[in-house]
Write a protein that binds this DNA or RNA. Structure first.
Lengths: 145, 145
DNA sequence: ATTTTTGGGTCAGTTATATTGACATATCTA
DNA sequence: TAGATATGTCAATATAACTGACCCAAAAAT
């Protein structure tokens, strides 16, 4: 039987450490932009998720963020006050709230994204398409385990 | 000129979102174990880094964690009180402090690691070695950008 | 038609983790 | 010896999360 080196503990430990660094590095660059609007990482994550899932509901966001609704509410209030998002009642189910980025929110997202994409863009640019594809597949496997 | 689809904004956005999920999923499972010792994520990260870098100095840890020494100090005090780590003066440079996991710390690390490795292990098990290798390379490229 | 469940909102208090800024001490280096 | 470095510590503050207890309105189930 072949030895699967990449399943050895030391390799898994490498990944645990690297995933920490990758997350931190990926999410640290836009901090100056966020500070300009008095936003923190929590706002950052909400803006990203709303941009990617326009019209997402409160419970949709809660499922993706895995925080409490009290925590989310604080963030949403800030974003509404800042005029970055608008919230609409559901047409089918009027208990639901659908969240959208408005013009200001889209502008802020773009500023954030411009900073945040750099490291990933450069890393991918220096990789071949097969590597990028396989990178994505393993990422997804970890998420869906 | 070929179009590099994987450099398109929408693909980068995928990665930004996935990296968040992967980090969270990778670091969420050991929370019950940590709670048993009244430890949080900050302690978790320190234990991991000390296990991987036995004898690391304070400034070594600060460079990896990128937090302030005041923040680190709170964590280290907890870990010392709990008898998970010991701190020794440097023999060459006695200003330095070298941090080691002791028996209790190793035991706690193993409990944490047992929980934390599961998702990664299963994800890698369902991947071929080429994918795992390429996954690691792209991770490193993002970190070192 | 009434009851139960669901989606969301909110008040209050607490905890965890990080920050800034200032200052102290010992030790190493030039 | 002067300055730089490694670490420790006090105090105040910010951020982001938590638990727990309620509330209302609308949908779904009975």
């Amino acid at each position: 039987m072949r030895e699967l080196l990449y399943l050895k503990d030391e390799n898994i430990k490498d990944f645990i450490e690297q995933i920490f660094y990758v997350y931190r590095e990926t999410y640290s660059d836009p901090k100056k932009v966020l500070k300009k609007y008095s936003f923190g990482s929590a706002h950052h994550r909400v803006i990203i998720l709303v941009e990617r899932n326009n019209g997402i509901t409160i419970s949709g966001l809660l499922n993706k963020l895995k925080i409490t609704k009290q925590s989310l509410n604080r963030i949403l209030k800030d974003l509404i006050k800042n005029n970055s998002i608008i919230i609409k009642k559901g047409e089918i189910d009027s208990r639901q709230r659908h969240i959208f980025l408005n013009e200001k929110g889209k502008k802020i997202f773009n500023e954030i994204f411009t900073e945040q994409k750099k490291k990933i863009y450069n890393a991918l640019k220096n990789s071949d398409s097969d590597s990028v594809l396989k990178f994505k597949k393993v990422l997804n496997k970890i998420i869906n385990e």
